[in-house]
Design a protein around this nucleic acid. Structure first.
Length: 487
RNA sequence: GGCCCCUUCAUCUAGCGGUUUAGGAUGCAGGAUUCUCAGUCCUGUCACACGGGUUCGAAUCCCGUAGGGGCUGCCA
C-alpha cells in the first residue's frame, strides 16, 4: 500500500515548488490507489502562522489536490488514523524517540551553549561541532545537574547510501556530518528527527521531495537505522527555478500559487505546466494533460534530474489551451466572478447572454482576466476611442460618417437582431458604398467598442443589442462631426 | 571552501552506443484563413558546454575543465 505525504511548514503561502512536490506525491498516490497525507511541519513555533495555514489550504484546494489524511486545515476537519498531523502536537512522541536513542547510546546529551560553540568555525566560516560532549562519562553528566542540554545524534562511522528513484545511487561519507541536534534545549524536536519519526509512525512508503533535501537524506537514513525502522523509497526531484535560472524566490510574483489564480490562470493549466517541469509522459510529444490524464500517465521513472526554469509564455499558451478545452457553460461560470470583481454587473444579463459572451471570447482568451479587456464595452460606456485606431480607421471623417449613416438606416429597420441578418446588412452596405467588408467593419468596431480589436464583429453586435448599437453609432457620428469642424 | 546534483535549440524537453541530415513544444519570423485580435493550419529559425579518452562507431559510457544549482542552523 503506497502512502505518500506533503509536509509543508506553514511559514508562508503555498509556494509553486511546494505545489510541484505535492502534485507529484498526490499523483503517485492516486496512480497507485494509495494514500496521500498532509502533515504540517510546524515545529518552529516562531515561524508558524495560522494565516498561512489557511492560505495553503486554499492553494491546495484550488489546484484540486486533496488529501486522505491530514490535520484540520482551513474548513476541512482532521482525517486519518495516524494523527495528529501537526508536528506541534506530537512533541511527546519525538521526545520519547529521542530519549530512546539516548538510552541506547545512539544519541547523547550536549551541554554546550549555542554561544560557546560560536567560536568553532571551519576555514570558511561555517560552524561545526567539535564533539565536546560526545564522550562524557556518567559522572561528568551527573555533575552538570540541571544544566540545559540538547540531544545530539551520534553519527556513526562509515558511509550512507541513498538509492533514489530519481537520482539513482548516491553515496555520502558520514564524516561530513556533525553530530547533529535532534532535540532542542526547549524540548522541541529538530526537523530531521520529526520527519523521520513521522514518516515511520505514519508508515510513509515513498518520500518524494525536492532535491534540496538530498544532502539531508543521509541524516534521515541514519535515524531510520538507529530507530530500527525500514527505509521508505526516496525520490528527489529537481527544483523549480525562476526565469533567470535561480531559486524561485518567495518574493517573486508567481511564487505564490494563488498569484496565478489572481492573474486569470486556470488551476488545470498550472498543474499541467508544473507537472511538465521535469517530467514527460511516455507518450511522446504530448503536453496537454488534465488532472485525470496526469494520474493515468504519471510515473516517477520519467522525472528527470535537471532543474527547470519557469517560462510564463509557455504557461500562458497552456492556459489558453485549457481555456479552450472548457465547456462554454463552465467557462462562463469562471468568467463571472472576474467580471464582477472588475465592477461589471452581470446580474443584468441573462444566463444565455453570458454563455454566449463566453463562447465568442473563448478562443481569444490567453487568461481569464483578458475577458475584462474583451468585454468591458458591453457593460459600460467608454469615454474615449483608442487613439491609434482612430488615426488609422477614422482618418476620413466625412467618409466614415457616410458609412455610419448608411449602416444605421439599415439597422434601424432590422427586426431580427441576429448574426446572419446583421451580416447581410453589412454586405448590402458594402455593395452600395462600393467598399470591402473590412473597410466598413473596422471603423464601426471602433465606434461600438472604442477599440480596434475584440470579439467577432457580428457576434459582438448581436450581444450589444440594437439600442446600444444605434446609440453608439450616433455618438460616434457626433464625435466625428465635431472633429471635422475643429480642423 | 567541503560534499552532492545538474549541463541537448532563447525556454521546457525527447534521446538511455549504430534506427539521428539530433525529434517535439513554447517563443520568434513568414505564409494561409480573413471583419480586427486571437485561434487554427503550414513553412522557417535555433542546440548535443569544452577538452581528453573507451569503441569499428558516442548527444548517449569514463575522466578532467568550465558553468549552474543545492546542502553545509537549537529553519524546514
Amino acid at each position: 500500500m503506497v502512502r505518500t505525504r506533503i509536509a509543508p511548514s506553514p511559514s508562508g503561502f503555498l509556494h509553486i515548488g511546494t505545489a510541484k512536490t505535492a502534485l507529484y506525491n498526490w499523483l503517485f498516490a492516486r496512480k497507485n490507489k494509495g494514500t496521500f497525507i498532509l502533515r504540517l511541519e510546524d515545529t518552529d513555533a516562531e515561524r508558524t502562522d495560522e494565516q498561512y495555514v489557511h492560505g495553503m489550504c486554499e492553494g491546495f484546494k484550488w489546484l484540486g489536490i486533496d488529501w486522505d489524511e491530514g490535520p484540520p486545515f482551513g474548513d476541512v476537519p482532521e482525517k486519518g488514523n495516524y494523527g495528529p498531523y501537526r508536528q506541534s502536537q506530537r512533541k511527546e512522541l519525538y521526545q520519547k524517540m529521542a530519549f530512546q536513542l539516548l538510552e541506547q547510546g545512539k544519541a547523547y546529551k550536549c551541554f554546550c551553549s549555542k554561544e560557546s560553540l560560536e567560536a568553532y568555525k571551519d576555514d570558511t566560516g561555517n560552524l561545526y561541532y567539535p564533539g565536546f560532549c560526545r564522550n562524557l562519562t556518567p559522572e561528568q553528566i551527573c555533575e552538570k545537574g540541571n544544566a540545559p542540554y540538547v540531544i545530539r545524534f551520534r553519527v556513526p562511522e562509515g558511509e550512507t547510501e541513498i538509492n533514489d528513484l530519481i537520482q539513482g545511487k548516491v553515496v555520502f561519507s558520514n564524516n561530513q556530518y556533525d553530530d547533529f541536534i535532534i532535540l532542542r534545549a526547549n524540548g522541541d524536536p529538530v526537523f530531521h528527527l520529526a520527519v523521520v519519526v513521522d514518516d515511520i509512525t505514519m508508515k510513509i512508503t515513498h518520500v518524494i521531495r525536492g532535491d534540496d533535501h538530498l544532502t539531508n537524506t543521509p541524516r534521515h537514513i541514519m535515524l531510520f537505522n538507529a530507530l530500527g525502522a525500514p527505509l521508505p523509497q526516496y525520490a528527489h526531484h529537481p527544483l523549480v527555478h525562476d526565469e533567470q535560472g535561480r531559486k524561485f524566490s518567495k518574493r517573486l510574483h508567481g511564487a505564490n500559487v494563488l498569484d496565478w489564480r489572481d492573474d486569470g490562470y486556470l488551476p488545470e493549466a498550472i498543474v499541467n505546466y508544473v507537472a511538465l517541469l521535469g517530467w514527460t509522459s511516455e507518450e511522446e510529444n504530448r503536453e496537454f494533460f488534465t488532472l485525470p490524464d496526469l494520474i493515468e500517465h504519471f510515473s516517477i521513472e520519467r522525472i528527470n534530474k535537471s532543474p527547470a526554469r519557469f517560462d510564463r509564455r509557455k504557461l500562458e499558451w497552456l492556459n489558453g489551451l485549457h481555456i479552450r478545452n472548457l465547456p462554454v457553460e463552465e467557462l462562463k461560470d469562471r468568467l463571472i466572478p472576474i467580471l464582477e470583481k472588475n465592477g461589471f454587473d452581470t446580474s443584468t444579463k441573462s444566463k444565455e447572454w453570458l454563455t454566449r459572451l463566453a463562447q465568442i471570447c473563448q478562443e481569444k482568451l490567453p487568461t481569464l482576466n483578458r475577458i475584462v479587456f474583451l468585454s468591458d464595452f458591453f457593460f459600460k460606456d467608454f469615454d474615449s476611442y483608442e487613439a491609434e485606431a482612430e488615426g488609422k480607421l477614422w482618418k476620413n471623417p466625412e467618409n466614415v460618417i457616410l458609412y455610419f449613416k448608411t449602416i444605421q438606416n439599415k439597422l434601424a429597420s432590422l427586426s431580427h437582431w441576429e448574426h446572419d441578418p446583421l451580416k447581410q446588412i453589412f454586405d448590402e452596405a458594402c455593395a452600395e458604398l462600393n467598399v470591402k467588408l473590412g473597410a466598413l467593419i473596422n471603423p464601426t468596431r471602433l465606434a461600438l467598442t472604442g477599440k480596434s480589436v475584440g470579439p467577432g464583429f457580428f457576434e459582438l453586435m448581436e450581444l450589444l443589442g440594437k439600442e446600444k448599437t444605434l446609440e453608439r453609432l450616433s455618438r460616434a457620428m457626433e464625435y466625428l462631426h465635431n472633429k471635422t469642424k475643429e480642423v
